[in-house]
Simulated scan of single mutants.
Amino acid sequence: MAWELAGYGVTAAVVVIAAAFLYGVVNVVCSLRRLDQAVANLSREAETSLQGCSRLAEEASEAIQVSRQSLQGFASLAEGARALGEAVQTAAQTAVHVTEQYREILTSPIRSTPDDRDRGERETPNLSEIGRRLWMMWKKGEGRAGSSRNPGTSADPSEGE
């Protein structure tokens, strides 16, 4: 009987070991299924995140391109403003010069004879002379500015006729 009891004990131990092994295998399989699901979820989330990052990169690229075009436009605008400023400055200098010359012509000593002074009459400046002087000043200023529109023309309008 002791041998029978020992046989039953060994059999019970083998059954318990087999059950424990089976329980361990089932736990490992369940853990692997959960791990597989977690990996699948992570893969979907990573793909969604990757698509979002890709869209963000495309939008950033477009924004950089638009910014570059805007900066080029601003550079062109600044160059145009600089050229306009130079033109305005040149025009202002020319206007000041013409105004000074015109004032000088008009305020130059008026020719008069002693008899005219007694009578209070004076000779007025000849308007054609004023026009000729202004024309010559304008032509001189044009040559000074480096303009080569009409290099063969003379400063005196009567010379070409």
Rank of each mutant, 00 (worst) to 15 (best):
A2G: 01
E4N: 00
A6Q: 09
G7W: 02
V10R: 03
T11H: 11
T11M: 14
T11S: 13
A12N: 06
A12L: 06
V14A: 01
V14L: 01
A18G: 13
A18L: 07
F21T: 13
L22V: 03
L22D: 03
L22K: 00
Y23F: 11
G24H: 05
G24A: 05
V26H: 09
N27L: 11
C30F: 14
C30P: 05
C30T: 10
S31P: 00
L32Y: 14
R34S: 12
L35E: 15
D36K: 11
A38L: 04
V39C: 01
V39Q: 01
N41W: 11
R44G: 02
A46R: 10
A46C: 05
A46V: 08
E47R: 09
T48D: 07
Q51L: 13
Q51R: 13
G52C: 00
G52N: 03
G52Y: 00
C53R: 08
C53T: 12
C53A: 14
C53D: 14
R55F: 12
R55Q: 11
L56R: 09
A57H: 06
A57R: 02
A57C: 00
E58W: 02
A60D: 13
A60C: 11
S61W: 13
S61A: 10
E62I: 12
I64A: 13
Q65K: 08
Q65A: 13
Q65V: 09
S67Q: 12
R68C: 05
Q69W: 01
S70A: 11
S70H: 06
S70W: 10
L71A: 10
G73E: 02
L77Y: 00
L77E: 03
G80W: 00
L84T: 06
T90D: 14
A91I: 08
A92P: 05
A92E: 08
A92Q: 04
T94F: 07
A95C: 01
A95Y: 00
V96F: 09
V96N: 03
V96A: 08
V96Y: 07
H97Y: 15
V98T: 13
V98L: 09
T99N: 12
E100R: 10
E100N: 07
R103F: 03
R103D: 09
E104K: 13
I105N: 02
D115P: 05
D115Q: 11
D115S: 11
D116I: 06
D118F: 12
R119Y: 05
G120L: 05
G120W: 05
R122M: 07
E123N: 04
T124N: 13
N126P: 06
N126M: 07
S128M: 14
S128K: 13
S128T: 07
E129F: 03
G131C: 10
R133Q: 12
L134G: 00
L134I: 00
L134N: 00
L134S: 00
W135C: 14
M136Y: 04
M137F: 14
M137Q: 14
R144M: 15
R149V: 15
N150M: 03
N150K: 06
N150A: 02
T153S: 12
A155N: 11
P157V: 01
S158W: 14
E159S: 03
E159G: 01
E161S: 08
E161R: 09
E161D: 09
